[in-house]
């Protein structure tokens, strides 16, 4: 506390020599540090507690180059923010605006690359709870996906429809019989067309359930079926065993997902400044400094996530 209360008109003020908004932002960043270290700490602890971990890029489809490029993108955007803030302080608002546009664009690039990576994970079904961790899980997963694919073709519905139609034909009056029979034969033709796929799936399923097929043969059969029925079997993934793959996917998506949310929030903060267009003035200097601090923190988190998830 001050021993000499400030005199009116003097330039003494109480509190810290920084704007309140900046103090607030730093306090917020303090909570953010704990938020992310909770994730990183859990990851380290879970990983040390696991006997193994999937790290081969052939298995996890983690691309260190994409991660590296994204690291560079965030670092460059951080540099742009710092230059923008410097320009704001020097009242060079047009220069600040240009650099902020650059930051915003780089944020979008980061999200674009992240989307490519997420899409790859989705395509290979490396999603929490979806990963087969041993051969029998992989076989069961393939069978389940094939069952869904058969269901999707309408095979099972047609089967019921044909049974119902046959009953109707048998009970129908002479006049209506011809129309019903025509309908029945159309359904039967459609059913026959779906038959080969459904039969192939059933045969694979029987083998898997009877355990008369090993992983390599099952894998090969799935590939053959996908090649033979490209449209019908489109939803079936190639069997892919990743031991510890589910916890890996959980951690990957939890950490990169929360980081991506932070990037989006940062983009909104910069969008608010850019919305001012050429009317940008010194009223926005604190805003730019504070959102810049937040953006650097987002960069900081990525600096740790990149080696932890992509390299180590």
């Amino acid at each position: 506390m001050s021993h000499h209360p400030p005199q009116p008109g003097s330039n003494l003020k109480m509190g810290l020599p920084i704007p309140n908004s900046k103090l607030g932002l730093w306090l917020f960043l303090g909570t953010e540090i704990m938020f992310f270290t909770a994730f990183i700490g859990s990851y380290i602890v879970l990983r040390i507690g696991s006997k193994g971990w999937p790290i081969s890029p052939e298995v996890t489809h983690i691309n260190v180059l994409l991660g590296g490029i994204n690291t560079f993108v965030l670092i460059l955007s951080s540099y742009f923010v710092v230059v923008a803030h410097e320009a704001m302080a020097k009242k060079n608002f047009e220069r600040a605006r240009m650099y902020l546009i650059g930051t915003f664009a780089l944020g979008l690039v980061f999200m674009g690359i992240k989307s490519v990576e997420y899409f790859g994970k989705y395509q290979h079904d490396i999603l929490p709870g979806h990963v087969a961790e041993n051969d029998s899980q992989a076989a069961n997963k393939a069978v389940n996906e094939f069952d869904l694919a058969v269901e999707k073709t309408g095979y099972n519905d047609l089967k019921l429809e044909i049974a119902a139609l046959e009953l109707e034909v048998a009970q129908a009056e002479e006049g209506k019989k011809a129309a019903l029979e025509e309908q029945l034969s159309a359904s039967k033709a459609a059913f026959a067309e779906l038959g080969p796929f459904a039969d192939a799936v059933k045969s694979l399923k029987d083998q898997v359930y009877a355990e008369t097929i090993d992983f390599a043969a099952m894998s090969k059969r799935v590939e053959e079926l996908k090649a033979e029925f490209p449209e019908k079997a489109a939803g079936v993934h190639e069997p892919h065993v990743i031991l510890y793959g589910n916890i890996f996917a959980s951690i990957y998506f939890l950490m990169t997902g929360f980081h991506a949310i932070h990037v989006i929030v940062g983009l909104i903060l910069f969008a608010a400044v850019l919305k001012q267009g050429s009317n940008l003035d010194e009223k926005w200097t604190d805003w730019v400094e504070n959102s810049g601090l937040y953006w650097h923190f987002v960069d900081l988190v990525w600096i740790f996530l990149f080696p932890l998830l992509y390299i180590v």
């Binding site: 040390i48 507690g49 971990w53 790290i55 298995v59 961790e133 051969d135 992983f215 390599a216 065993v241």
Partner: peptide
């Protein structure tokens, strides 16, 4: 063994991946 490499589980299928 935290950083140990996870194997491709199972005895078979290693030829593929």
């Amino acid at each position: 063994p935290g950083e140990a490499h996870a194997p491709h589980a199972g005895e078979s299928g290693n030829a593929d991946t």
